[in-house]
């Protein structure tokens, strides 16, 4: 496995989010983490890049333990693992090409003009070549998400983490993002870990899926295994039925 979470525990104050989560992600997989809101899906992936720290357990990446690294030692890991956030998180004071060029200058030490040239190429890859000089605020959510993906790809990461990439997008833009995620895996060999509730995405592009419930990986398997799964809790999540054994925070 390229990534392994081993018996992860994480709490925020008295609220225990992860309670012994274990799962693994293979190379070049499109791996979906699913589960109800507030179950700890985004929290799980943020541990991989040191944005959050686990309370107990171990995280291994490419055979090395990374959960105990200092902020400084996470820098090389962050060059290999990129993340596309839920809200795109482009910097409003910069144009799209400047946003994409920023990590190239800071992480790779490229000169400004060289970084901007590479940024233009990356924006073309995500079909945003006509908007390189636009400010993020002038674009739609779908366009901003694509630009955010281009910025993440700037580091040529081995792994890309997607936090709810299709949330808030219309179906057409959502499927475009799905296609982009699949292309990254098929054409560039990128491993994608996707946090999502979007069942259309899940059942169209996932190689494997892990369903988090009550702080643990309740079920992991291929999308075919999930489609045929007869577990009442998994079935209720997939069907979206409001009645059933699935317990959700706040209900």
């Amino acid at each position: 496995m390229l990534i392994e979470f081993r018996d992860i525990h994480k709490a925020f104050g008295s609220k225990k989010i992860l309670r012994g989560l274990s799962m693994g992600v293979g190379k070049k997989e499109v791996f979906f983490i699913i589960g109800t809101s507030g179950v700890g899906k985004s929290v799980t992936i943020k541990h991989l890049i040191g944005l959050l720290r686990i309370d107990e357990g171990e995280i291994h990446f490419d055979g090395k333990r990374i959960d105990n690294l200092s902020e400084k030692h996470f820098y090389p890991i962050r060059k290999r693992i990129g993340m596309v956030f839920q809200h795109a998180t482009l910097f409003d004071s910069m144009s799209l090409r400047e946003n994409v060029a920023l990590p190239l200058r800071k992480h790779q030490g490229m000169r400004p003009n060289q970084a901007l040239g590479k940024a233009d190429e990356l924006l073309e890859r995500v079909h945003m070549q006509d908007f390189i000089h636009s400010a993020p605020a002038a674009l739609s959510d779908g366009m901003r998400k694509r630009a955010a993906i281009a910025r993440t790809l700037a580091m040529e990461p081995q792994i890309v983490l997607f936090d709810e990439p299709t949330t808030g997008l219309d179906p057409v833009n959502a499927r475009r993002i799905d296609r982009l995620i699949r292309e990254l895996s098929d054409e560039l060999g990128v491993t994608s870990i996707v946090v999502s509730h979007d069942l259309t995405s899940i059942f169209s592009i996932a190689d494997r899926i892990s369903f988090i419930y009550q702080g643990k990986a309740y079920k992991s398997g291929t999308r075919q295994e999930f489609e045929c799964c007869d577990d009442a809790i998994v079935r209720q999540f997939i069907s979206g039925d409001s009645h059933g054994p699935l317990e959700t925070p706040g209900f």
Binding site: I49, L51, Y75, R78, M83, Q86, T89, K106
Partner: peptide, 13 residues
């Protein structure tokens, strides 16, 4: 709160 600070950290800043 919009995770731009996290994005900065990931950009090596």
């Amino acid at each position: 709160v919009t995770e731009q600070i996290d994005a900065l950290r990931l950009s090596g800043i």
